[in-house]
Design a protein around this nucleic acid. Sequence first.
DNA 1: GACAGCATACCGACCGTATAGTATGTATAT
DNA 2: ATATACATACTATACGGTCGGTATGCTGTC
Lengths: 220, 220
Amino acid sequence: MSRPTKNSPERGDARTRLLEAARDVIRKKGFAATSVDDLCQSAGVTKGAFFHHFKTKDSLGVAAANYWAETTSAFFASAPYHEPDDPLDRILAYLDFRKAIIDGETFEYTCLVGTMTQEVHDSAPAIRDACSDSIFGHAATLEADIQAAQEQRCINVDWSAESLARHTQAVLQGGFILAKAAGDPNLARESVDHLIRYFRQIFNVADTASQKEYAKPKET
Amino acid sequence: MSRPTKNSPERGDARTRLLEAARDVIRKKGFAATSVDDLCQSAGVTKGAFFHHFKTKDSLGVAAANYWAETTSAFFASAPYHEPDDPLDRILAYLDFRKAIIDGETFEYTCLVGTMTQEVHDSAPAIRDACSDSIFGHAATLEADIQAAQEQRCINVDWSAESLARHTQAVLQGGFILAKAAGDPNLARESVDHLIRYFRQIFNVADTASQKEYAKPKET
DNA sequence: GACAGCATACCGACCGTATAGTATGTATAT
DNA sequence: ATATACATACTATACGGTCGGTATGCTGTC
């Protein structure tokens, strides 16, 4: 909150501070409800700094989506879920990891680009496209492992690795909405649990505490 | 777009027209980006009418969420997916139905209360609660059938009917986000397909074109 | 190594407009 | 006559964006 003075060490990173402020404030209040002044105050910079770095509020939106894409890419690339040798194990580790990082305040675990997409998909194509790139770019990082696991373990599948990768993101995004509605991150984790169960089912891998037993359908 | 005159037959339904305008415009532009004037213009009424029926813009938001809850409840209650005798068949018919109504322009098939939840969850508790009631109220209509199907066909389950009902809504909401991001309703339908496959798996029911064959896991 | 010249980074007052909300008046139904 | 259902004109403010200015650092020249 301390404003950088003329010769403060923070000089030079107003842009980054604004992008970080955007990341957090927009996740709390949404894009349209977040004013330029909100962002400046939260970043501890002035309006002059804002419009020095960003031509318009919308261009800040694009930059924020790209910043999100970059930082989350790096974050996931260095995450430990890539360690297992088996591709399916990597996928399950990914899902466990996604579940583990759903914690704290809503704005800390929800997805900036998912939030912005909802608001601007029809009115700000530039922002929407940047958000779209981030979402589908991340989904694409899962495809190779899904494809490998599919080839290794499944026959006669009627789904593509691409669609399943996208589905994982849909489940996460939807879980965030329910979590916001109820004010409870457990609802997002709960959906990831169902998704994990789906993966175990379609890849035919037993859970530690499995539900592999079935009752014979009774006639009603 | 035609404004009702003093003695036009539309007199008396400004409130409904505003709620319908809210339903459509907010799904396009989002709540914050939708101005009161936008709504008045779209409904063909004046500001006086707006603030006669709604104390504030936020109270319109609450009313719109409640209107959505009422109209969608009636819509789903009279839908044909309740016909099958078997509870699991009813659930699968529900999911087919949800898939079938994902069509046309984005604002025609997406969920008003999901959209609003994203925006206002932190800043307008009254709206969020109304949205929350709509989402979880609808999810609750699925619980009895899920519970019945579970008791009929599953043993040793580690999931509750309640959580699975919520998960269906999460998948739908998430599918809408991806559809908005890509501008393509197919992405929402695709996620429903995965959800249907999940239901078939956990309830152990064969698909017409099944993927019940599995390859023996190869060593990598 | 001092200094001119220049670009970048930022400041903060200001502007025009859009926005939520109000005040007051009027037509219609009961 | 009174309440309801609007219509119209108006207000205060918040908002995105502009503009002239200043501080800081870099670069080449002598």
